[in-house]
């Protein structure tokens, strides 16, 4: 399937907007003191302008993009689990949170339920052992102490 030209049109307009936003942001910076005659404004403005030009060029001359149809449900599960992970990390501690993340992701990759559960726990425990115990980099411990 092809996404047609709309993909490039959206990307192009987005870049155009970000570029203009960057110019505007740099323009509105309040600089009380700068050690050099150029200051912090000029560079982001030039880069923003370049981005806007690149965006406009993509917008005005869109090309077809080869678009493979995939399973966006799986992408959403993995992305959603990743967003919730920091929260779980804070309340549950490293091993439970990571096991949950791995379980959700494993199910998204069509793993068998029991196997995925076992693998998730094993992975989480292995990372804790490797990073926290062996390398000595503290990972957050939850109420269970793991």
């Amino acid at each position: 399937m092809k996404a047609g030209l709309s993909g490039d049109r959206i990307t192009g307009s987005l870049f155009l907007l970000i570029g203009i936003g960057a110019i505007w942001h740099a323009w509105s910076l309040d600089v009380p003191f700068a050690a050099d005659p150029v200051g912090p404004k000029a560079f982001p403005m030039v880069v923003g302008a370049l981005l806007a030009i690149a965006g406009a060029s993509i917008l005005l001359r869109p090309e077809e993009i080869e678009w493979e149809v995939g399973d966006y449900g799986r992408v959403a599960v993995v992305a959603g689990a990743s967003f919730l992970y920091p929260l779980a990390l804070e309340f549950l501690g490293f091993v439970p949170a990571t096991a949950l993340l791995c379980f959700a992701c494993g199910k998204a990759f069509r793993g068998p339920t029991v196997g995925t559960a076992i693998a998730s726990l094993a992975l989480a425990a292995a990372f804790l052992l490797l990073i926290d115990t062996l390398l000595g980099l503290p990972l957050p411990r939850g109420p269970l102490g793991i």
């Binding site: 993995v78 990743s82 990571t98 993340l101 791995c102 379980f103 992701c105 494993g106 199910k107 990759f109 069509r110 793993g111 068998p112 196997g115 995925t116 693998a119 998730s120 992975l123 989480a124 990372f127």
Partner: peptide, 11 residues
């Protein structure tokens, strides 16, 4: 298998 590999990489 994928269902161990990619969760592991993410974790």
């Amino acid at each position: 298998p994928n269902w161990i590999l990619f969760p592991g990489v993410l974790g």
